[in-house]
Computed example of a mutant assay.
Amino acid sequence: MAEAAQPRLAQAGEASAIARLIDAAYQPYRDQGVALPDVSGGVDEAIADGQVWVIEKTSLQGVLMLSTAPPIAHLTNVAVAQSTRGQGLGGALIQWALQLSTSAGCSEISLATHVEMPGNIALYAHLGWRETERDDRRVMMVRALP
Score class of each variant (00 low, 15 high):
residue 130 R to G: 07
residue 106 C to P: 09
residue 103 S to W: 02
residue 29 Y to E: 04
residue 91 G to Q: 12
residue 83 S to K: 08
residue 70 P to W: 09
residue 62 G to Q: 02
residue 122 A to H: 12
residue 72 I to E: 14
residue 84 T to A: 15
residue 102 T to D: 07
residue 6 Q to P: 06
residue 58 T to Y: 04
residue 87 Q to C: 11
residue 42 G to S: 02
residue 2 A to E: 13
residue 27 Q to V: 04
residue 77 N to L: 13
residue 72 I to F: 08
residue 127 L to F: 00
residue 99 Q to F: 00
residue 57 K to E: 08
residue 77 N to S: 14
residue 9 L to S: 04
residue 2 A to P: 02
residue 102 T to I: 07
residue 108 E to F: 11
residue 24 A to H: 07
residue 108 E to Q: 13
residue 17 A to H: 03
residue 144 A to R: 06
residue 37 P to N: 07
residue 105 G to K: 08
residue 46 A to S: 14
residue 50 G to K: 03
residue 143 R to L: 00
residue 54 V to R: 01
residue 116 E to Y: 14
residue 53 W to D: 07
residue 39 V to K: 10
residue 41 G to S: 07
residue 86 G to N: 05
residue 65 M to H: 11
residue 1 M to D: 03
residue 61 Q to N: 06
residue 68 T to M: 05
residue 46 A to L: 13
residue 20 R to N: 09
residue 92 A to T: 13
residue 106 C to M: 12
residue 87 Q to G: 12
residue 116 E to N: 15
residue 95 Q to F: 00
residue 125 A to K: 15
residue 61 Q to Y: 00
residue 64 L to F: 12
residue 98 L to I: 10
residue 143 R to C: 03
residue 146 P to C: 11
residue 54 V to D: 00
residue 67 S to G: 10
residue 31 D to L: 07
residue 138 R to V: 11
residue 124 Y to H: 10
residue 47 I to R: 03
residue 25 A to Q: 01
residue 52 V to K: 04
residue 81 A to P: 06
residue 134 R to M: 09
residue 111 L to M: 15
residue 123 L to G: 00
residue 113 T to C: 14
residue 140 M to A: 07
residue 125 A to G: 15
residue 84 T to L: 05
residue 11 Q to C: 09
residue 59 S to L: 06
residue 53 W to P: 04
residue 57 K to W: 00
residue 64 L to E: 03
residue 28 P to L: 10
residue 83 S to W: 01
residue 51 Q to L: 15
residue 117 M to D: 02
residue 125 A to S: 15
residue 120 N to E: 08
residue 32 Q to D: 09
residue 67 S to W: 03
residue 19 A to W: 00
residue 59 S to G: 07
residue 10 A to V: 14
residue 105 G to A: 09
residue 104 A to G: 15
residue 11 Q to L: 14
residue 28 P to D: 10
residue 57 K to Q: 12
residue 47 I to G: 02
residue 146 P to S: 08
residue 6 Q to S: 13
residue 78 V to D: 01
residue 24 A to K: 05
residue 26 Y to Q: 05
residue 56 E to A: 15
residue 76 T to E: 14
residue 39 V to Y: 02
residue 133 E to D: 13
residue 66 L to F: 13
residue 38 D to Y: 01
residue 12 A to S: 14
residue 121 I to M: 05
residue 146 P to G: 12
residue 143 R to S: 03
residue 103 S to R: 13
